[in-house]
Simulated scan of single mutants.
Amino acid sequence: MKSALVSWQVWAALSACFAALTAIFAKVGVENVNSDFATFIRTIVILFALGAILASTGQWQSLSTVSVRSYAFLVLSGLATGDSWVCYFRALKLGDAARVAPIDKMSVVLVAVFGVLFLGERLSAPNWLGVTLIAAGAVLVAYKS
């Protein structure tokens, strides 16, 4: 049996839990703070936390070991992450966490579509049904009656 620490499912579930906490903590934290400044503080915390993880686990690697292609896509990913965080914090500043988070999670639907279009991934009919249900669920949870 695989160790839980090498199971993508365990890490994905932990990611979902931390993402949920992120929404709750951020909603309270952004209450009396400019959303962009709040994102800046969050980014500094992440920078230091990851630095500590890399240092404590000995995972630092030489910058020369990273290919130009990897650098390019990591920079693009970083820019997309930053844009996502800025938009997310602005949305939390303006809306309810219980409505903002589900719309943010429409990224699951977009990842499925982009994975098929750009990465050549294949999804079965049940997978597409799940994607459709996620989209419908996000809209229903975000709906304000």
Score class of each variant (00 low, 15 high):
2 K>A: 11
2 K>I: 09
5 L>N: 12
7 S>Y: 09
8 W>V: 10
8 W>I: 14
9 Q>W: 10
9 Q>P: 03
9 Q>T: 07
12 A>M: 12
13 A>L: 12
13 A>Y: 11
13 A>C: 14
14 L>N: 15
14 L>G: 04
17 C>P: 02
17 C>N: 07
20 A>M: 10
22 T>F: 09
22 T>W: 06
22 T>G: 05
23 A>V: 02
26 A>N: 07
26 A>H: 01
30 V>N: 08
34 N>S: 09
34 N>F: 13
36 D>E: 15
37 F>C: 11
39 T>R: 10
42 R>V: 14
42 R>K: 15
44 I>N: 07
45 V>Q: 08
47 L>M: 15
47 L>T: 12
50 L>R: 12
50 L>S: 06
51 G>N: 14
54 L>N: 08
57 T>K: 06
59 Q>P: 03
59 Q>T: 12
60 W>C: 04
61 Q>L: 02
61 Q>V: 03
65 T>Y: 04
66 V>F: 04
66 V>M: 06
67 S>E: 01
68 V>Q: 12
69 R>T: 14
70 S>K: 01
72 A>I: 03
72 A>H: 00
75 V>Y: 08
76 L>I: 11
78 G>V: 09
79 L>K: 01
80 A>R: 09
81 T>I: 08
82 G>E: 07
84 S>L: 06
84 S>A: 10
88 Y>P: 00
88 Y>G: 00
88 Y>E: 05
90 R>F: 14
92 L>P: 00
92 L>R: 00
93 K>P: 05
93 K>D: 11
94 L>A: 07
94 L>R: 12
94 L>M: 14
98 A>I: 02
100 V>C: 05
100 V>W: 02
101 A>I: 01
101 A>Y: 03
102 P>M: 11
102 P>E: 05
104 D>R: 00
105 K>Q: 13
106 M>T: 12
107 S>P: 02
109 V>Q: 00
110 L>W: 05
119 L>T: 07
120 G>T: 04
121 E>H: 08
122 R>L: 01
123 L>D: 05
126 P>N: 03
126 P>L: 06
128 W>R: 04
131 V>Q: 06
131 V>R: 02
132 T>F: 14
133 L>V: 09
133 L>D: 06
134 I>P: 04
134 I>D: 05
136 A>Q: 08
137 G>W: 12
138 A>W: 07
140 L>E: 12
143 Y>M: 10
143 Y>D: 04
145 S>K: 13
